[in-house]
Design a protein around this nucleic acid. Structure first.
Length: 269
DNA sequence: AATTATTTCAACCGCTATAGA
DNA sequence: ATCTATAGCGGTTGAAATAAT
């Protein structure tokens, strides 16, 4: 199901449903270069979307290993359980359900599970009240409300341990997610002849993995493009070749440089 | 079969947190 | 300390799908 047929806003940014072509462009780009900067990514990927929109599309739909379709009973139960402990912390809940996005879980909760959880909660409240009533009658005049205080204390401990578990699972959300994503891209490992982990260390914020502007045919030789390309050439000349060897083949590099010179001879002259 | 009401869920929006200048 | 850019989160929207009449 899609939200709306697409349209362009007053700034020329495309909104609404993503087309298959846009999905393919975004997927291909991120699988090749990673998401190094969401703000700039759409331009390089060749899609007329906002960075936010690209990020959302990738995180919620295009990421590798994302599940789509019905939730299993186990997943539903887990969401209910985690929501009971964490509340509307969809991102934290999603971190415990592999292949499900926070958005998907939020929708699942709002459309299916909220009612079910309320029913369960109502039953539990009745049971708890009966239990408390029994205790209170048993321990009348000893303590005003011993059972409720104990319950609150246990819940806090549960929440704390759960958060501790989440934090220990992921040293950094962006790093851990990109590690998972990268490990599923054999092309990168082959290209670099590096383990995904080592490659990731090189990838994050690495100049050499940022896309070369000429990759995007829709972008003409603007001053920004030329500046970036000149910077690229300067860096290539002045830097030791280790990174170049890892990240690019000679064939790609020289063909890119040739193309650049051909296309921009007038500007250079 | 046609119309209306309801449900679903992908995408948007506004806000906050964080990092870097 | 302040400003700016970016990433991420959670609430909300609204078109499409489905159910009810």
């Amino acid at each position: 199901m899609v939200k709306a047929s697409s349209y362009f806003d007053k700034n020329g940014v495309k909104k609404g449903a993503w087309s298959e072509d846009e999905d393919n462009k975004l997927r291909a780009y991120i699988q090749r270069y990673g998401h190094w900067n969401w703000g700039l990514l759409p331009k390089f990927a060749g899609v007329s979307r906002s960075g936010k929109s690209c990020r959302l599309r990738w995180m919620n739909y295009l990421r590798p290993n994302m599940k789509h379709g019905n939730f299993t009973k186990e997943e539903d139960d887990l969401v209910i359980d985690l929501h009971k402990k964490l509340g509307n912390k969809w991102s934290a809940i999603a971190s415990k359900l592999p292949g499900r996005s926070d958005n998907e879980i939020k929708n699942r909760w709002n459309t299916h599970l909220k009612k079910r959880a309320h029913v369960i909660s109502d039953h539990q409240t009745v049971a708890e009240n009966e239990h408390i009533g029994t205790l209170e009658s048993d321990q009348a005049n000893v303590n005003e409300n011993p059972v409720k205080e104990t319950d609150v204390e246990l819940d806090l401990q549960e929440v704390e341990s759960l958060f501790a578990g989440i934090l220990s699972d992921q040293e950094s959300p962006s790093f851990s997610s990109s590690r998972t994503e990268l490990s599923s891209y054999p092309d990168y490992a082959v290209l670099c002849d590096l383990s995904p982990q080592t490659f990731e260390d090189e990838l994050v914020g690495n100049f050499w993995t940022a896309p070369f502007l000429r990759d995007n045919d829709s972008i003409g030789p603007s001053c920004d493009n030329l500046l970036s390309t000149f910077n690229f050439v300067n860096d290539f000349i002045s830097h030791p070749p280790s990174c170049q060897d890892m990240m690019m083949s000679d064939e790609f590099l020289w063909s890119t440089l040739d193309t650049f010179v051909d296309d921009n001879m007038d500007f250079i002259n």
